[in-house]
């Protein structure tokens, strides 16, 4: 065993394993909880742990965005969907045994394949001396609006269009068609 006793490294390691354990347990709750609201809370925990991972990887800007969009937006949307479509007493029936077996088999097969692939592949790691850009937020911003080679301005605009389209689409889909008649009556 070779645990390096450099305190900075040690805290990093402890943080990694704590977050990993928490997020795996929470992810299991997400897929198995009978009460759907608890699954939503567990999803929030997984996503918060994800932000923690990003901080460990030194991408604090992405961690901030993850918290802002995922936890602040998506999880609350999901919680809303849960509130609108089920009640506190509604308990989901467990899946049938065949379905369970199928799911378990697929996920384990994927896990095994991926882990074998990782262990077989030799990844071209960057050298230790390589330095991350100091201000991730600034680098991301510059890259997103860069229209030269390697710039992302086109995908950026496409994403904004996608978001606009999804917002309009959501309004169209979720609108109650009966409301129109009521509106003209009053």
């Amino acid at each position: 065993m070779d645990i390096t006793l450099n305190p900075a490294d040690l805290t990093h390691t402890i943080a990694f394993y704590t977050l990993a354990l928490t997020s795996i347990v929470a992810a299991l709750i997400v897929v198995t909880a009978k009460r759907i609201f608890r699954a939503a809370v567990a999803l929030a925990v997984v996503l918060i742990c994800g932000a923690g991972f990003y901080i460990l990887l030194n991408y604090d800007f992405i961690a901030g965005v993850q918290l802002l969009v995922y936890v602040g937006g998506i999880v609350i949307l999901i919680v809303f969907a849960v509130m609108l479509t089920s009640s506190l007493e509604s308990i989901e029936e467990p899946p049938s045994l065949g379905r369970k077996a199928l799911g378990l088999f697929s996920s384990l097969a994927f896990l095994a394949t991926a882990v074998i692939a990782f262990s077989e592949t030799k990844f071209p790691l960057s050298s230790i001396s390589a330095e991350q850009p100091k201000d991730v937020a600034k680098a991301v911003g510059r890259k997103l609006l860069d229209y030269g080679a390697g710039g992302y301005v086109l995908p950026f605009e496409v994403i904004s269009l996608l978001l606009l389209a999804s917002v309009i689409g959501a309004i169209v889909v979720a609108r109650n068609p009966k409301r129109k008649n009521e509106g003209s009556a009053t």
């Binding site: 604090d60 901030g64 918290l67 936890v71 602040g72 937006g73 609350i76 937020a137």
Partner: peptide, 24 residues
Amino acid sequence: NIGVIFISAVSSFGVLGILLAGWS
């Protein structure tokens, strides 16, 4: 160094707590 984003991100935990309280 992402203070502004972080502060508006964590404020959403609070509303998650409110949603939890109301539901449960």
